[in-house]
């Protein structure tokens, strides 16, 4: 695995952990209290998916800070480098949207599979 993929995975870790937390923290509620897991959790997960997509579209993944660092250290930054930054940003955005879809999928799975258990 090369460098850049490793970094991308680092960025992906955060939303995945968020997903696991959402799913896991409500399990005790479901087990010990009156909480309709099947009704609420898919909706919450689905909404979170949308929010993750939203973050992916609006967050610059630290590009601004990176560019200001580049300027601060008097490094050169030409058009190609900027292109590259934009491209990487776009790829990250697509990845986040993909994760959003993963949320949707999980939501459907919870809704459809839970009654079978």
């Amino acid at each position: 695995m090369n460098d850049i993929n490793r970094t991308r995975i680092k960025y992906v870790v955060f939303p995945i952990i968020a997903l696991l937390i959402i799913i896991a923290t409500s399990i005790p509620l479901y087990l010990f209290f009156h909480f309709n897991y099947r009704v609420y959790i898919p909706i919450i997960v689905f909404m979170s998916g949308i929010i993750i997509m939203f973050i992916g579209a609006w967050w610059d993944f630290g590009a601004k800070k990176f560019i200001s660092d580049v300027f601060k250290t008097h490094m050169e930054l030409n058009e190609d480098d900027l292109e590259y930054v934009y491209k990487q940003q776009f790829i990250m955005m697509l990845i986040y949207i993909g994760i959003g879809f993963l949320y949707f999928l999980i939501a459907f799975i919870i809704y459809l599979v839970l009654p079978l258990l």
């Binding site: 909404m47 949308i50 997509m53 939203f54 609006w58």
Partner: peptide, 13 residues
């Protein structure tokens, strides 16, 4: 994206 976000907020509201 913003549109979906608005939908979520409206739903919750």
């Amino acid at each position: 994206m913003l549109v979906l976000f608005v939908l979520v907020i409206l739903y919750v509201m």
